[in-house]
């Protein structure tokens, strides 16, 4: 065993090849899960007694909002790995996660405002969850902006890592302060500690979709990590081989 895995993970070529395989697996599994979860959720799950059919956007909105926050935490893990073990792959991961995370945040805000119109009668309210999601989006955007502004990639990676870590300490504070400030949004649909308030025929497809979107996120992150690796290693011989091969 020993430290071999560490060197393998440090090698961009090794990761590029492996990630390609993982990416395909994630893609197929995601497709299967999303097909089952979405069809079940949209077609067969019972309608809500209050919101009727409009609640069905939950099968997109909740997983996407969940992931928007989870990806930030994943980014923080990458930042710690970058600082402690100086693993360049963690920096590549951070770069990919920032872009994918921003995408999911925008999607969460967008699907939320579509849901808000029939439910609350307006696309946007200054509610706690919406506001903290908006702030999360700005944090992601700041990371993308910071990285693109700094020319030296090593410096950019470490600067982003500092910002990610300061952000991850702040996120709970932002969340609680905003919640105290104003709350209209319904409470979280899923909590690890409690049984969901909806019947199983509603939450099982939601859970399937949640897993599905996790895999979608993994697929997107792996794809974008591979692109970043190709870009960063563009001078090396193996990249030329890969490009000629594909």
């Amino acid at each position: 065993m020993g430290w071999r895995w560490f060197h393998e993970w440090g090698s961009p070529k090794w990761f590029y090849d492996r990630a390609g395989r993982w990416q395909r697996v994630c893609g197929f599994l995601a497709l299967a899960l999303l097909l089952v979860g979405t069809l079940w959720g949209l077609g067969f799950a019972p309608a809500d007694y209050q919101q009727g059919n409009s609640y069905r956007i939950i099968y997109l909105h909740v997983p996407v909002a969940f992931l928007a926050q989870a990806l930030y935490v994943a980014m923080a893990v990458c930042a710690i790995v970058l600082f402690v073990w100086k693993m360049k792959l963690a920096d590549v991961g951070m770069q990919a996660l920032a872009v994918v995370g921003f995408g999911f945040t925008v999607l969460a805000l967008f699907s939320g405002s579509i849901w808000g119109k029939p439910t609350w009668g307006t696309y946007w309210v200054w509610d706690a969850r919406l506001t903290s999601m908006l702030i999360l989006g700005f944090l992601y955007l700041g990371l993308i902006g910071l990285r693109s502004a700094i020319k030296n990639p090593d410096l950019a990676g470490k600067a982003c890592a500092i910002l990610v870590l300061v952000g991850v300490v702040n996120l709970p504070i932002i969340k609680y302060s905003v919640e105290w400030w104003s709350a209209l949004h319904q409470p979280a649909s899923f909590k690890l500690t409690e049984k969901p308030a909806m019947p199983a025929s509603m939450w099982v497809p939601l859970l399937i979709n949640l897993l599905g979107y996790y895999l979608v996120a993994a697929y997107l992150v792996l794809a974008s990590m591979r692109t970043v690796i190709l870009d960063r290693e563009r001078g090396s011989a193996w990249v030329r081989e890969v490009i000629e091969r594909d």
Binding site: T131, L141, L146, A149, A159, I174, S177, W180
Partner: peptide
């Protein structure tokens, strides 16, 4: 964080402003 960039003065502000939210909420 933005010291290494060419004089793009506004970036540091854009990056940090979202983190001001709790302070502003409490003060308000």
């Amino acid at each position: 964080l933005t010291l290494g960039t060419a004089r793009s003065g506004i970036l540091g502000v854009l990056v940090m402003l979202p983190l001001f939210a709790p302070v502003i909420i409490l003060a308000a």
